[in-house]
Computed example of a mutant assay.
Amino acid sequence: MITHFQWKPLFKDNTLPGWKISFYVNKQHYQAIYHKDGQIEWKNIQPSDHLEAELKQAIHELMLFHVYE
């Protein structure tokens, strides 16, 4: 589903929460901001409601794996 997942801190001071994320789904490039409370702010494309629910779950899992562990 999600490929080429990338994340980086929003601020140079890594202790401040917030991350820029980007990834591909079905050859479509998505960019968003992942806030410390788990809210996702879509930047370039808003996914459909059905896809958004699936993406949010997958992104939360990826962020838990990469950032919080």
Rank of each mutant, 00 (worst) to 15 (best):
A58V: 07
I40Q: 03
K56H: 13
L10K: 15
Q6Y: 08
L51P: 02
D49H: 12
M63P: 05
E54V: 03
L51D: 02
F23N: 01
M63H: 02
K36C: 09
E52K: 02
M1S: 13
E54S: 07
Q57N: 10
E52W: 06
W19Q: 02
W42M: 05
I33L: 10
E52D: 08
Y68E: 01
Q6C: 12
G18E: 07
H4T: 10
M63L: 03
N44S: 02
Q57E: 14
Y24V: 05
L16G: 01
L64R: 11
Q28W: 03
W19F: 10
S48A: 13
K8R: 15
S22T: 02
D49E: 15
N44D: 09
L10A: 03
F23M: 01
A58F: 11
S22P: 06
K27V: 04
Y34R: 08
G18K: 01
F11V: 04
T15G: 00
L55Y: 01
W7K: 03
V25N: 13
E52L: 10
A53W: 09
A58S: 11
S22Q: 09
Q31A: 10
N26C: 08
Y30K: 01
I21S: 01
Y34A: 03
Q31M: 12
I21P: 07
M63Q: 06
N14M: 14
E69S: 15
L62T: 04
I40R: 00
